[in-house]
Amino acid sequence: MNDDVLELLFTGLGETLYMVLLSTLIALILGLPLGIILVATEKGNILESPRINKVLGTIINVVRSFPSIILIVVLLPLARFIVGTTLGATAAIVPLSIGAAPFIARIIENSLKEVSFGKIEAAMAIGANPLTIITKVLIPEALPSLIRGLTIAVIGITGMTAVAGAIGAGGLGSLAIRFGYMRYRDDIMLATIITLVILVQGVQLAGDYLATYINRKRYKFD
């Protein structure tokens, strides 16, 4: 492999990391409240509201029904409106965030539902308001599970950036398509895949480590 290829690879990796980090961050900012609302408005829960729950659930399901490539294409006009262009990594962040937010919302909903309702009742019994219950009970109690869920989300978003790369977003996905596939450059294809494997492994390891660290702190005997 010569220096040019290496340079391509580094640029691609940089773009991918940029897209993944920012998209995850924005998707989390959008998805976290949605996931909390999904749980809190459930029947019998702290802010019971079947209507809000149903409407929100339906919207999330609709967005999640789109295959990611279609969702990205459909949302490109929005990217043009916000960023001014439909090309490049920054433009891709708009559809990626919106596409990932419902996914993250469902993952967060799942994690929060693992918290036994008895703990919520105990907090209600001491007179805590719903906001306190969410911030001091639901989220801290579910934290290890939330982190594991977010790890899944980050890896999912990494996959989505490759799809976005195929239609002009740049990044490792674009590199694999443009050079590896279209120009029959097997070496670039291989290098891209290895880089992605290392990236995903790293994310998974970090997530596992963090979740285990929190759990171990709570279980530790001294």
């Binding site: 001491i126 007179g127 709570r218």
Partner: peptide
Amino acid sequence: LQLARRKIGMIFQQFNLLDAKTVFENVAFP
């Protein structure tokens, strides 16, 4: 009701302690 509940203590069969908080923090929570 929230205010009144602060003066009604309750204990449960399954304890319902918060696993993320230490003993001190659990007792301090109310």
